[in-house]
Measured scan of single mutants.
Amino acid sequence: KTVKFDGLQFDFDNPEKALKFALEVAKQKGAEVHIHGDEIKIE
């Protein structure tokens, strides 16, 4: 899975870790997590 935000991109082999990371970043930024297939966007 790939996590994208602020023009940055982070690749994870483990989908659970990717989602956990995305949710943590979103919480800190006050943003929402959007999942599109293998891509997780924080907006």
Rank of each mutant, 00 (worst) to 15 (best):
E43G: 12
D38T: 11
F12L: 03
G37Q: 08
F5M: 05
F21G: 03
G30K: 06
F21M: 03
K20R: 11
P15Q: 09
D6V: 04
L8H: 06
L19G: 00
E16A: 10
D6N: 11
D38S: 10
H36L: 11
F10I: 07
E16I: 11
E16H: 09
E43A: 10
K1Q: 09
K4S: 10
K17E: 15
L23R: 08
A26H: 00
V33F: 07
L19C: 15
G30Y: 06
E16P: 00
F12G: 02
D13S: 08
K4A: 07
Q28S: 11
G37W: 08
D38R: 09
K29I: 14
N14S: 13
K41Y: 15
E24C: 15
E16W: 13
I42A: 02
V25A: 06
I35Y: 07
I42Q: 02
N14H: 06
G37L: 07
V33Q: 00
F21S: 03
V3K: 01
K41T: 14
G37M: 07
I42W: 03
H34S: 10
D11S: 13
E39W: 10
K20D: 08
T2S: 08
H36Y: 14
K41L: 15
K27D: 05
K27H: 09
V3A: 03
G30H: 08
F10E: 00
K29S: 11
V33G: 02
L8F: 10
K20I: 10
K29D: 05
H34L: 11
K20T: 08
L8E: 05
N14I: 05
E39Y: 12
E16F: 11
K17M: 14
L8N: 05
N14Q: 05
K17C: 15
E24F: 11
L23K: 07
F10A: 01
D11C: 15
D11Q: 13
A22M: 04
A22S: 01
I40R: 01
K17H: 12
L8P: 00
E39V: 14
L19M: 12
L19T: 01
F12I: 03
D13L: 08
I40P: 00
K20M: 12
K29L: 14
D6F: 11
T2K: 06
K17I: 12
V33D: 03
A26I: 03
F12M: 03
G7T: 05
V3M: 04
E24Q: 10
F12A: 02
E24V: 06
H34E: 06
A31T: 07
D13P: 06
Q9A: 10
A31D: 04
L23S: 05
I35P: 02
A18E: 01
D6S: 07
Q9V: 13
E43R: 12
G37S: 05
K4R: 11
K17L: 14
F10H: 00
I40N: 00
G37T: 05
D38K: 09
F12V: 01
V3D: 00
A18W: 10
D11L: 13
A22I: 03
V33C: 14
K4Y: 13
F5P: 01
V25Q: 05
K17F: 10
A18K: 01
I35E: 04
K27N: 08
P15C: 15
N14L: 05
E16G: 06
K29W: 15
K20L: 12
F12S: 02
I35W: 09
A18D: 00
I40T: 03
K29E: 07
E32I: 14
E32D: 09
E24D: 07
G7E: 04
E24R: 08
G37D: 08
F10Q: 03
K4I: 13
E24A: 12
V33Y: 07
F12N: 00
L23D: 04
K4P: 02
D11M: 13
L8Y: 09
I42S: 03
Q9I: 13
G30L: 06
I35A: 04
E16Y: 12
G37E: 07
K4E: 04
E39I: 14
L8C: 15
P15Y: 14
T2M: 06
E32L: 13
K1M: 15
F10L: 05
E24H: 07
I42K: 02
F5Y: 10
A26S: 03
P15R: 08
G7A: 05
G7H: 05
K4W: 14
V25S: 01
T2P: 03
H36N: 11
E43M: 13
G7R: 07
L8G: 02
A18M: 03
F10P: 00
A26N: 01
F5I: 07
D13K: 07
K27G: 08
G7P: 04
L19A: 01
K1S: 11
N14D: 14
